[in-house]
Simulated assay, not measured.
Amino acid sequence: MSIAINLLPPEYRPRRHQLSRRVIIALVAGGLVLLAYVAFLGEMALAARRVAWLEGQLALYAPGAQQAAASNTALGDWRQKERELEQLVQNGRRWGQMLKTINEALPADAWLTGLEEDEGKGELTLTGGSTSLGGIGDFLTNLQGTNLWSMVSLQEVKGNGQSLTFTLRAVFPGAPGDAGKAGTIERAVEGK
């Protein structure tokens, strides 16, 4: 075993280059920061690849999504139309039967010039003419005898010498103005 002994005084001895503790800490910290930065760049590159892949997938499904949205809108429109048709069927008037009944109730010496429905009030206004007051009375009586209206009343009669014009009001069953007016038919006829 050999032992090396240096007999030179310390000031003449060759110095070893030792790094101070601070420099070592700074180098380690710098290395860690550099390593973290490289890891961050790697994660960013992976994220960019994922985003590009997801955008590609989105581009594949976008036309289908637009078509589905358009179909959904069209389906909503059709459902709305279906609800409206169901409401019309439930609340709608059977105009064919109604016009046939009005025609059958109309005497030979009377005629109609107008027919107007007020859906909000549930009323039908009939205007027409006759050659006699009896023809108007017969028409009113015939309409009152049908089951299409809860109330039929004479609103107005005017004469111009040879013919008379009249206005009748018929209230549909269940209309907002229907309740308690059954007795006014006779009063309306008697009052004219």
Rank of each mutant, 00 (worst) to 15 (best):
I3Y: 07
A4P: 01
P9V: 09
E11R: 04
Y12K: 11
R13T: 15
P14R: 07
P14F: 04
R15W: 02
R15D: 06
R15L: 13
H17S: 13
S20P: 14
V23R: 15
V23K: 11
I24Y: 02
A29T: 14
A29H: 11
G30R: 13
G31I: 10
L32E: 10
V33T: 13
A39P: 04
L41T: 04
A48Y: 02
R49M: 03
R49Q: 07
R50Y: 09
A52Q: 11
A52Y: 00
E55C: 05
L58N: 15
A59P: 05
L60M: 12
P63G: 14
A68C: 02
A69N: 09
A70F: 13
N72L: 12
G76N: 10
W78F: 13
Q80W: 08
Q80Y: 08
Q80T: 09
K81D: 11
K81L: 08
V89F: 01
V89M: 03
N91W: 03
N91H: 05
G92D: 08
R93M: 08
M98G: 10
K100T: 14
I102Q: 02
I102C: 02
A105C: 12
A108G: 00
A110W: 00
E117R: 03
E123I: 09
G128R: 05
T131K: 01
L133R: 12
L133G: 03
G134C: 01
F139R: 03
T141L: 07
N142K: 02
N142V: 04
T146V: 08
N147G: 08
V157P: 02
K158G: 08
G159V: 05
G161P: 01
Q162N: 15
S163Q: 05
F166V: 06
T167Y: 00
L168C: 09
A170M: 14
F172Y: 15
P173M: 04
G177F: 12
A179E: 12
K181W: 10
A182P: 00
A182G: 10
G183S: 13
I185R: 06
R187L: 12
E190P: 02
K192G: 14
